[in-house]
Amino acid sequence: MMLTGWLLFSLALFSIGLYAVLARRNLIAILIGIELMLNGASVNFLAFNAYLSKDPAVGQIAVLFVIGLAAAEAAIALSIILAVYRSRNAIDVAGLDELKG
């Protein structure tokens, strides 16, 4: 039963993150949303790893990869946000709609 609890927790994290990405207009909030989604998936990995896996290392290695990736992604995202801020003095997505059609 513990596994179900952890799965629900990870799903909640993931859904909150997805909601933040889709609903928030602020680029930092969107970035945090993406990180939440990644963390939700990581918790999922760890829960399965702890309760079901034969090899307890695999899920933990996966999460280490995710942490490394999240750091790289945050670095790139923050540099984009800085570039956007420098040119427009604002960091919401509302103005990023020049390309369409």
Binding site: G17, L18, M37, A41, F45, S53, V58, A62
Partner: peptide, 22 residues
């Protein structure tokens, strides 16, 4: 691409949960 990454990872986690391997 950030959303896609999170979906990929969640998918892998579920497959890993059933199969116990990556």
């Amino acid at each position: 691409s950030g959303i896609a990454t999170a979906f990929l990872l969640l998918g892998f986690a579920f497959v890993f949960g059933v199969t116990g391997s990556t």
